[in-house]
Simulated scan of single mutants.
Amino acid sequence: MNLLKKLENLENVTPNERILIDAILKDPESFIAAKPKEIASLTYVSVPTIYRLINKLGLSGVNDLKLQLQDALRSETEVPVESIDFPISPTDTVNEILLHLKDVYTQTIEDTLNLSDQQVLVDVSALMKQAAFIDVYASAGNLFFARNFQFQMQEINVNVNVPEAEYMQKLSAGNADARHLSIVISFGGRGGSMNTVCQILSDNHSPIVLITSTQKNPLTRFAQYKIYMSSYENHYQKISSFSTRMTLLYILDTLYSIYFRLQYDELLNRKLTTYEKIHRRLTRREPED
């Protein structure tokens, strides 16, 4: 049962909890966008009432409530999951394939945007600036996006470590400490190696930012910050990871852009100056013997 249905059928609630439930059901999008104090002010209930309702729903907090609302809204209003997992058919023309993939990308971007917590993105970008070292842990296809992020940061003279082999990831985690910011990319926390990496990082008091799906992920218990990926796509039953790649690229590009904004003029000048030096060297005609 999705959360909207669960709210409609919830029994043994107080009058104030019923007021809150009715407000959520009437305008769930506004509830998702608001903070607890704003919700309390708009519905004329207390903040403790919000948390009592959360406890009755068996949820872990306000963010968990909002994520489940988001999932419920998607299941009722969006294109079926099958269209994300199997967006093309054998009879599609090239133009139809182009349009279907465009729909997948558009839906993924919109969902990632709706899931984003802007304060978390700002806080993580500030941590990136403060950290002496930035380490990104990823596996399989996500490694390509981690390396792309590494390249972007290298362009502005910020070194990012992306260990790839399982042993090197564990070694990197073992050497991490509070000066390291560890960004862990794991859609569902299914790989045993990432669990070990996160345990080591936690033991070393290295702050962890987890980029994950809205589905249950055992790695969330280690993370100080969580950034959520669009989670339409089935982990196995699909043609390709069209949606997962798009949501991860969007998130990493956003982190890079917010970081860049923190020192915009300095970093822009640094990047342009560096590429001007490279260009001059490449185009300068070397003297002949």
Rank of each mutant, 00 (worst) to 15 (best):
N269F: 15
Q263S: 14
L267I: 06
E266N: 10
S257V: 05
T247F: 04
T244M: 08
M246A: 12
N269I: 11
N269T: 06
F260E: 11
E266L: 07
L249N: 02
N269K: 11
L248M: 07
D265K: 03
N269V: 11
L252W: 05
L255N: 08
F242V: 01
S241Q: 12
S241K: 13
R245W: 04
Y250H: 02
Q263Y: 11
R270A: 01
M246S: 11
L249H: 00
S241P: 15
T254L: 15
F260L: 15
S257W: 10
I258D: 07
R261M: 12
L252Y: 08
L249I: 03
Y259P: 02
M246C: 15
M246P: 01
L248F: 06
S241V: 12
L268G: 13
I258S: 05
F260Y: 15
I258L: 15
E266M: 14
T244C: 09
R245K: 14
E266W: 04
N269Y: 00
R245L: 10
T244N: 02
R245C: 02
Y259V: 00
F242N: 01
L268Y: 10
M246D: 00
Q263A: 11
Y256L: 11
N269D: 12
E266G: 06
R261W: 04
L255S: 03
D265P: 02
D253E: 15
D253I: 01
R270I: 07
E266F: 04
L255D: 00
D265W: 01
I251T: 01
I251N: 00
L248G: 01
S241M: 04
Y250D: 10
Q263K: 10
Y264M: 08
L268A: 04
L249F: 08
T254N: 13
T254M: 12
T244G: 14
Y264P: 03
R261F: 04
T254R: 13
S243N: 09
L255T: 07
T247V: 11
F260H: 09
R270L: 10
S257K: 04
L262N: 13
D253V: 09
L267A: 01
T254W: 11
M246H: 05
I258G: 05
F242G: 02
Y250T: 08
L267E: 03
Y259M: 03
L252H: 02
T254V: 12
L248P: 00
F260V: 07
D265H: 08
Y264I: 06
F242S: 09
F260T: 04
S257E: 11
Y259N: 05
R261T: 09
T244D: 10
D253A: 12
R270D: 03
T244P: 06
L252E: 05
R245Q: 10
L255H: 00
L252T: 06
S257N: 09
L252M: 14
S243L: 09
Y250I: 02
